[in-house]
Design a protein around this nucleic acid. Structure first.
Lengths: 159, 159
DNA sequence: ACTGAAAATTCTCTGGC
DNA sequence: GCCAGAGAATTTTCAGT
């Protein structure tokens, strides 16, 4: 994967925007000592090249009684590539499944799941998840406290 | 937790902004059939009340060779409240630990960790994580493929 | 690649319904 | 709570280096 297209300024832009999507080009320009139309051009380029994929507003999950988070690990009975892809394609269609990672280790997938209550959790697991093909063992844990949630990936300087 | 402060329009705003932080007030107004200055007032209020906590730009992680993600579960030897809080306060200071959840189940914490290579992973686990007080067993898995990553929480309509 | 300036658009505030 | 309007600020385009 070629990443030499990005220079130091591009990386700085990505670092800053990962922390605050609403920084204006003028604010970026001030921090990076360039003109604001330069920032406009660079940010547009980063979008066009696919480095920037979108932006999201973050909300305080604790203000909503209906948001209970569970992490569920799934082990399939069939570990063939077809079975893994088939499961993946099905499970990501459930709106309760916010995140789905194919992982190394004893389990094949790690799912981040949101439910509004235990009834919703039970319904998802018993009626939807467990009914998918090849699903072997499941192991779930619920989030008691979210101590940290940093969405900005640390980017290495280009040498 | 009182959530009756929010009406349907507030929820719609939060739903839309969770999907795209860069929607203008004018665009929100069009979608929700209100004036753009009304949107400005409501969004400002949602920020002031703490419902909106920030916004982030998303980048394509696959374009960076240095971003390897691991999920690590940690079990402590001492399950007292003090020990849990002490561990939590230490572990969230590591920049490699992007997310830290206190969870139910056999393990006490689930960590989302980013490293640039196996040397970095080893260093974090052996030299930093395992040296924290009360750390018992660790169980890690690496992300092979990110099949879904939805950051917008589903919000229930107010009745 | 960057700059500066001009045009288009959005933000922010005020007054009034 | 909502809207319209207006001035300020920002985005976006573009010619020039």
């Amino acid at each position: 994967m070629n990443t030499t297209i990005l220079d130091q300024t591009d990386l700085d832009i990505l670092r800053l925007l990962q922390k605050d999507a609403r920084l204006t080009n003028k604010e970026l320009a001030l921090k990076l000592h360039k003109g604001s139309s330069t920032m406009f051009e660079r940010v547009s380029r980063l979008k066009d090249l696919g480095y920037i994929t979108g932006s999201v507003t973050l909300i305080d999950r604790n203000k909503f009684d209906e948001l209970w988070i569970s992490f569920t690990q799934v082990q399939l009975n069939d570990h063939s590539g077809e079975a893994l892809i088939a499961f993946q394609n099905e499970v990501i269609r459930f709106p309760e499944v916010l995140e789905c990672y194919h992982t190394t280790g004893a389990f094949d997938f790690l799912l981040k799941i949101v439910v509004s209550d235990m009834a919703g959790y039970n319904k998802l697991i018993v009626e939807k998840l467990a009914k998918l093909k090849n699903v072997g063992s499941l192991q779930s844990c619920f989030v008691v406290n979210e101590a940290k949630r940093e969405l900005a990936y640390p980017l290495k300087d280009r040498i």
